[in-house]
Structure formats: C-alpha cells, structure tokens
Design a protein around this nucleic acid. Structure first.
Lengths: 348, 348
DNA sequence: TAGCGGCGCTAAAGCGCTTTAGTCCGCGCC
DNA sequence: GGCGCGGACTAAAGCGCTTTAGCGCCGCTA
C-alpha cells in the first residue's frame, strides 16, 4: 500500500543501502553474515530490508556468487508410466520439503533413458542451473557417477550398494529388508517362495533378489525369481508363470506395491484365496497395499523421510560441509497384514 | 579432450566472439535471431558456438534479459498424502515434457495450505525465480488469481468453471464428463445412484456434483452425494453410509481412481459382487482402476496431455503471445469395463 | 555531388549482486 | 610521538548476458 519515491520497481540492494545510509557492500556483508559490520549498522540494515520488503534476485546472486539455490532431479522412466507408484511422489515431496526449508528450489525432469539423463546433466552444468543433482535407480556399471564427477556437478545417489563410490550416497539397505521378509515367510512355514522382481539391471533390484536367495539358502527356502518391469502385463505374466510351476509357490513376494496389487488380481482370477491358498507380500509399502483385500503385508519405509535425508545430504554437499561417503537411511520394518499366513496344509 | 589456451573454464559469449572474430554483441544477436547480422557472419558464429560447446548461463541471461526460463508449480496438499493418486505425477510429467522441449525448467513445491502457497508465489515473484506459475485445484472465491495478477506473476489455471477470469485457464469440462457417466448408468437402468465426492470447496468437485444432480433430474435418477476427502477412511465411511441408506444405491460413482479402489474394498467386505449386486464407476481413469477385480468403468482423460496443454499455454503466455482466456482441454471419454452392468433385478 | 537511409556491425552501459582492494580512523605500543 | 594494526566501512570491478546508441559504409535519390 503506497510506497514513496520510486515507481513500482522491486527494491534492490542499492535501495536498501540508500535507505540505511550505507554502501551496497555493507548491505551485502550484513545479509551474508560476514564480519566487518558493527552490530548497530547490521540491525539498521536488516530493518531497512524488512521495511522495503527486499528479497534477493536469484539470478543476480547466482551470477555474482556462484550458487543457483536449485537442486535438480532427473527421473529416467517412460513418462506416461510415471506416477503409478506412489514412491516417486513421496520421495519428491520429502526432497522438496527439506530443500524449501532452506529456500532451495527443486527442479524436475523426466527423460526416457540414461543417455538423455546425462545430456540433461551436461546442460544443467553448462547453464549453471543447478547446484547439484540427486541420482536415482543406480544400475550396474552405471556411468553416471563418474560422468558427474567429470563434469563437476555435485551429486548424491540414492542407494547403490552401500560402499563408498565417486559420489556420496544415501543407502537404503534393501538386502537387510528383504532378509526380514524372507524370515517372516520362513517362520510361517513357507518353503516354495516366488519372487516377482523388478528391472534386473537396477542395483537395488539385484540386491533384493540376492538377499532373498541368500536368506533362502540359509533358511532352507526354495526361491524362484521372475523378473518383470513395472508394467501390469509383465507382472501378471510373471505371476502366472509362478503359478504354473510344478512346485507351485505358497507365497509370492513382489518388488513393489503396484506390482503386488497387479499380482493379487491375477491370483483372485485364478480363484486363490489370500492367505488361505497363497500368501503375498510387497516389498514396498504405501496407501495402495491397504486397498487390497486383505491388505498386504509389506516392508515399510518412510519414503518421505528418505527424500528429506537425500536433500539434507545434498545441501551439506553444495555448501562444502563434510559429507560421509555413505549415509545410512533408517531401516525398513516389517508390517504384517492379512495377506501372509501359515503355509497351506499346516494346522494353525 | 585438451582445449587450447584458457584453463578449464566454461566458454562465454566473449570467447566465441573472439573465436569468430566479431563482437559479443554480434554473437548475442546471432544467438537470438535478431536482424542486423549477415547470413555469413551468423553461420560463422553458430559454428564457433558449436565448436566451443557454448551454452548460455541462465543466471546471466535472466539478469540481463528478464527471463528465468523456469515455470513453477505449487501443490497444496498434505505432503505425505501426495502421490497416492497418479494424477499429479501424470500431470507433472506432461507439464515437464512440454516445458523441457523448450529448455524451460519446472520447479516444484508442496505446501500445506493456500496461504503458504501465496507466500511462495510472492517469494518467487520477488526473487524473479520463475516466469510464471501453474495453479491447480481452484476453490470457490479463490484469492489466488487476483493476487497473482496483483503481484505481476503470470499464471495459468487448471479448470475453473470455463468462464474468463483474471488469468487464463485450461478448462477440462468435468460437467460434460460427469453427464456422460450419468447417462451410462441411466442406460443400464440404474435409478438410485450414490456419489462419493471430493473436497467440496474445490470448484471442480462442486461442478461434478452439480453435473450429476442436473443429469439426474433430467434422466429421473435419484442421486445422493456424500463428500469425502482423499483419505481411504473417509471414502470407506462414505461408502458405508451409502450402503446403509433405506434405498440402497445400485451404482456408486467415485470422484477419483484411488477412492474407487478404496470403495471397492468396502463393497467386497460387505459381500457385494461387482457388477451383479452393485455397479461402480470412477471419475478418474488410470492404471490403478485396472487393478480392481473386475476392472472399473471410468471417465478417461489423458492427464499427461493435459499437462502438456497447460505447459503450452504457459509458454505462450510468458512469451507475450496471445492466449485465449479459456483453453478447452480434450473431452473425457467413457471407458466401460466390467464394474458397471444392468441394474440388479432386471433381466439382461 | 551532396544528402539520406539502411545494413552490418561495435562500444559501452546496465541488470543486481558479490568480492577484492582499498581508505580512514582510533588505539595501543615502543 | 611515530608507527603499526585492526575494525568499520566504501569504491569499484566483475559475473555473462542483453540492449541501446551510434559508427562507417554503400547505394540510391534529387
């Protein structure tokens, strides 16, 4: 409501300098908490900032100071299939919540393959658009970490294998989680266990399969893994393949919530009752698995928190604070619901 | 590999000017397709650009030229519930696909309420972080359009009521879509129809309810709308309330795919068979509704395309091209699946 | 043949901030 | 009493781009 003097122009640092009767340099120093400004002057400056409603122009700051206050996330997925799983949205929510607390923006891009993803990183690095990027879905022999180091773009990986690499990572221990799930099924007496796995080139998918087979060997389970991508068709086909085996599994583990739901549909069509005839567990938990009937046993992990942890790590990294090579994410916990039960044919 | 001369610094416009033997101004003009540069010089400059691998520094460009090449999206939702519905991710995918084709970035933020959303807009406007914003979930007497105009931040709305307002909108005609759905149910002989509606303060939710009741009046249907937010609990409660009515509905319409799934679970628990005992239709279509058993009849609309349309409109707007007050989105079509059938008690 | 307009190009300023290199002043010290 | 020093602050340059003003030249007209 009514500002004196200048036309309707955003106040700049020069305006607040004039208003406080100091030089622009002093204002910049005061705003950035640098020494060389007396307490009195500093408060006077901050008062002027508040009074005029000044906000930094990010472009100018980025040009002068070298920080874009923006973090990027490139998701490599067929664009139209994105969003069926709640995982992404949850992760993005968490990332964004932590970043925006520090007034850092999150920039999002969806591409079709890893090479396009690398192109985006190159472009962002060249344009100095982002201070760093979060990398998902690490693959075996993934070129991205090295490339990112080469182009000098700070990055944080989600997962990987928990060993130090060229860039820091946040490690969600899928191996441990899958082990818990295997132990749950073994405790219920299951021996023949099917596993509808994810995309096998992903490190985390591979680790899950390995964990299940390791635990199986230890606990005397007979594990059969059938890979499937994220589509319902493949998941349904994989489920049917498992049902068609000579030694039909008495329990099936799905790598994701959506896959589990798709699987349950196939089981229902086959006239199988849960958990009377067959048990089902999902590796990912979400609202969705509670929509199944009965609701599904799942490994629960707070994806939102995971996003926040990634963001915190990223913020430390771009600020040049020390960051551990591997940050451990909170462990998943087993949430038993109605879809897993005693193996059929055994008295309760 | 090995670049002569300078240390490992990104090439600037000055570098390519030197390389092409012209002034920086000429380079800028050539890059921006402005007249006053001969074809020969222009190609020479572009060759230098390609050779040196130059990319514009977005910060510098934004500072000089006033364009951030970034569009913002603020989603007002409880952060942890975001992502259960595929709608958002699909919309974001579409938005982003169109924007990134023009090398414009999408910036994303999730906030808890509209007042926080307005704060973000104010901040973004002050920081000149975004060229414009996309606004979702318009409410009755929504303060956002006027405020955005006031702060001079270009914006495009999704939906609204299809009438011109202070800012351009992309209009997805929920009224027409809901009418089609009502006609489908009427044709199957249903009279008592339940409706589990969304958040009634949203303009689009209200329009859907109105459409259903209008069509009901015309077609002789008895419509009962029960509002429910996006939670499973409310949806389940609303479904039970409908089932408990004296005149139990023979068909239920859900405002979203996830709500429909939650409803189907309740119906299954009540021992009702689809579509033998009761028909179910979802207003939103997605992969998820095919996970139900039987798959659900739904109004299908390409949310990805809708995102692209929003993005195109936004791009035109920030470029100062003429934009219609209301852009019509493609109409939804009815996708009949197994969940809707003849009203019970009527011979097929 | 002088005048004029347009084309192709350049010099220089400016966007809003950060940072470097001072300047100035008061104080303690030998 | 001169010197050095550190604290408080400023002038000015610079970040990489866009834009405005303007210059020189050529061809055309009167």
């Amino acid at each position: 409501m009514s500002s004196a003097g200048h036309p309707n122009r955003r106040p700049t640092i020069a305006d607040i300098a004039a208003h406080a009767g100091v030089s622009p340099t002093a204002v910049s120093f005061a705003l950035n908490d640098r020494p060389g400004i007396s307490a009195r002057t500093r408060t006077r400056i901050l008062a002027a900032v508040a009074e005029l409603g000044w906000r930094p122009n990010v472009a100018a700051r980025a040009l002068g100071g070298r920080r874009a206050d923006t973090v990027g996330l490139v998701v490599t997925r067929p664009a139209r299939t994105l969003g069926v799983e709640p995982f992404f949205a949850q992760l993005v929510s968490g990332l964004q919540a932590r970043l925006s607390a520090d007034l850092v923006a999150l920039q999002l891009l969806v591409v079709e393959d890893v090479s396009a993803e690398l192109d985006v990183y190159r472009r962002w690095a060249a344009e100095q658009r982002t201070d760093g990027v979060v990398v998902l879905d690490l693959e075996r022999d993934d070129p991205r970490p090295e490339e990112l180091v080469r182009m000098g773009l700070p990055a944080v990986l989600l997962s990987g294998d928990g060993t130090p690499g060229p860039v820091p990572s946040v490690f969600a221990d899928d191996h441990a989680a899958m082990t818990l799930l295997a132990e749950h099924l073994a405790a219920l007496g299951h021996v023949h266990v099917g596993h509808v796995g994810g995309v096998h080139t992903y490190v985390h998918s591979a680790r899950r399969a390995t964990a299940l087979h390791d635990a199986g060997a230890r606990l005397g389970l007979d594990i059969t893994t059938v890979p499937a991508d994220f589509s319902q068709d493949e998941t349904a086909a994989a489920t049917r393949a498992l049902l068609a085996r000579d030694e039909r599994p008495t329990a099936i583990v799905y790598d994701s919530d959506v896959a589990a739901l798709a699987g349950v549909t196939v089981l229902a069509e086959a006239g199988l009752d849960l958990p009377g005839d067959i048990s089902v567990a999902s590796f990912d938990d979400s609202e969705l698995v509670r929509l199944a009937h009965p609701p599904l046993t799942a490994m629960t992990r707070d994806t939102f928190d995971l996003g926040e942890l990634l963001a915190s790590t990223m913020l430390s990294l771009v600020r040049g604070e020390p960051v551990p090579d591997v940050v451990d994410a909170p462990a998943s916990v087993l949430t038993v619901r109605g879809s897993t039960g005693q193996v059929p044919g055994v008295a309760a």
